[in-house]
Design a protein around this nucleic acid. Sequence first.
DNA 1: TCTTTTGACCTTCTTTGACTATTATAGCAC
DNA 2: GTGCTATAATAGTCAAAGAAGGTCAAAAGA
Lengths: 160, 160
Amino acid sequence: MAQLSDSIEQFIKELMSDDAHIELRRNELAQHFGCAPSQINYVLATRFSVDHGYIIESRRGGGGYVRIVRMQNRGEKNFLETLLERVGTSIDEDTANAIISNLYERKMVTRNEALLLKAGVARNALALPVSAKDVLRAAVFRNMLIQVFRNIEEGKRDDV
Amino acid sequence: MAQLSDSIEQFIKELMSDDAHIELRRNELAQHFGCAPSQINYVLATRFSVDHGYIIESRRGGGGYVRIVRMQNRGEKNFLETLLERVGTSIDEDTANAIISNLYERKMVTRNEALLLKAGVARNALALPVSAKDVLRAAVFRNMLIQVFRNIEEGKRDDV
DNA sequence: TCTTTTGACCTTCTTTGACTATTATAGCAC
DNA sequence: GTGCTATAATAGTCAAAGAAGGTCAAAAGA
C-alpha cells in the first residue's frame, strides 16, 4: 500500500504546484486523510524539512495555520543545509561570527543584519556556564539562520 | 481565517492613518463587526499595548469613548534606555514581539531585521524551562536592541 | 530494525458572556 | 435654580469555552 505519509506528501506538493508557499489547516488535512493530526507533523518533519528545501511556519489558536515555504534556489537550499550542519547543537562565538561574516561577504545579509546576528550570538548575551552557552548559542543561531534564508526566499508579506 | 481580531486591528489602523490619535465607541465597533464588545478590549490589549507604542484612554457612561493614542517618538537615546529598562532581566516572547513590531512601525528596523529579531527571541530557539527562557531571552534581546540603535546611530562603515 | 501511525496530553490564541464600574442626564423635591 | 436620585448608556474585567497547532512515546507495520 502506498504509505499514508507518501500520499500526504504528494498531496501537499500538488497543492503547492508552482507556488513558493502554501498555507493549510492541519486538522482539515488530517481529516481529509482520516488520520491523526500529528501525522501531518510527521510528514512535515520527514519530507518538508530544511534539508528537503522547505521552511515551516505555523500559528496556533483560532485561525491557526501551517505555512510551507519552498526554497526556490537550489544553491541556497544546500548552503543553508551546510550551515545548519556546521552549527550543529553547539558552536562557539568565533565560529558563529565567521559564518556571519561569510553571509555578509556573499551579500546574503546587509551589514546591519550581520551586526544584529552577531549581537544575538555574542558571549555576553548568554549569561551561563561556558558549555551551556555554546549549546544555547547554537539554538538561537539556527533560528536566526533559517530566518535569514526565509527573508531571502519569501516575497514581501507585510505581517511582522 | 481572516481572524476577527486581525480585521479589527487593521480597521483601527486604517482609521488612524496618519493621525496621532482617534476616538471610537466600543459598542459601535463591536456591532460593526458583530462581536462581543469585550472583543474590542482583547484587540486593544494584544495589539495596541504600550509595548506596541500606543496608549489607551477611555471613559464610561453616556458619551463614553475609547481613545487610542500613538506614542510620540522620543529621542532615540532616551528610547533605547526606556526599552532596556522594559526588558529588564526577564521578558516573555509576546512582549518582546510587541516591542519589535513597534520598532518596525517606527521604521527603526527593516522588515527583515524585525523578523531576524523575532527569530532570535523565539520560544523554540530556547530549549529550556519557561522561566529560564525568559531570562535568557532578555539577555539576547538586550544585546540585539543595543545593536539596532548602534546601527541607526553609526554612519555606514563597511567593516563587519 | 527502522519507519509510520496513533493517541494522550500540552500550549497558544481567540471569542463570548456574565458581572462590575463609571458617567451623563432627566426628573424631582426644595 | 440647586441638589439629589434613579436610570440609561457606556466601558472594563475575568474566567470559561472554543479553536487551532505541537510534542512525545508507545503501538503497529514494513
